[in-house]
Amino acid sequence: MTDISALTRLCPPPEKPMTIDWTSVESALGMALPADYRQLADRYGPGRFNDYLSLFHPHGVTEFVNLTGLMPGRIRAQLHEQARLGTPPLPHHPDSLFPIGVTDNGEYLFWVTDSLDAPEQWRIAVNEARGPHWYTFDGGLTNFLVSVLSGMTRVPVFPSGLAEQEPSFAPSRPVLYKTSYTPLQPPVDTAAIRTWARANGYDVPSRGRIPPEVRRAWEDAHQT
Rank of each mutant, 00 (worst) to 15 (best):
H80G: 04
P72E: 08
L79E: 14
F56Y: 15
A118T: 12
Q78A: 14
D104A: 12
F49P: 06
N66F: 03
L90Y: 09
D104V: 05
Q82S: 12
P91T: 10
F56R: 04
R84S: 14
I75G: 01
Y44D: 11
F64Q: 09
S115F: 01
P46A: 06
G45M: 11
Y44H: 08
Y44C: 09
I75F: 05
G86F: 09
G47S: 02
P58W: 10
T62W: 03
P58H: 11
R84D: 11
D51H: 12
V112D: 05
D104F: 01
A83V: 00
T103L: 08
A77N: 11
R84A: 15
P99L: 02
I100R: 12
V61S: 02
F49Y: 12
E107I: 03
T113Q: 06
L109I: 09
R48A: 15
G73P: 04
L90K: 07
S96L: 06
W111E: 02
V65K: 09
Y52F: 15
F49E: 04
I100D: 07
L67Y: 11
P99S: 13
Q82T: 14
R74C: 03
H59W: 01
H57G: 01
F56Q: 05
Y52P: 06
S54R: 12
S54N: 06
S96I: 14
G60C: 07
P89C: 05
W111M: 02
H80L: 15
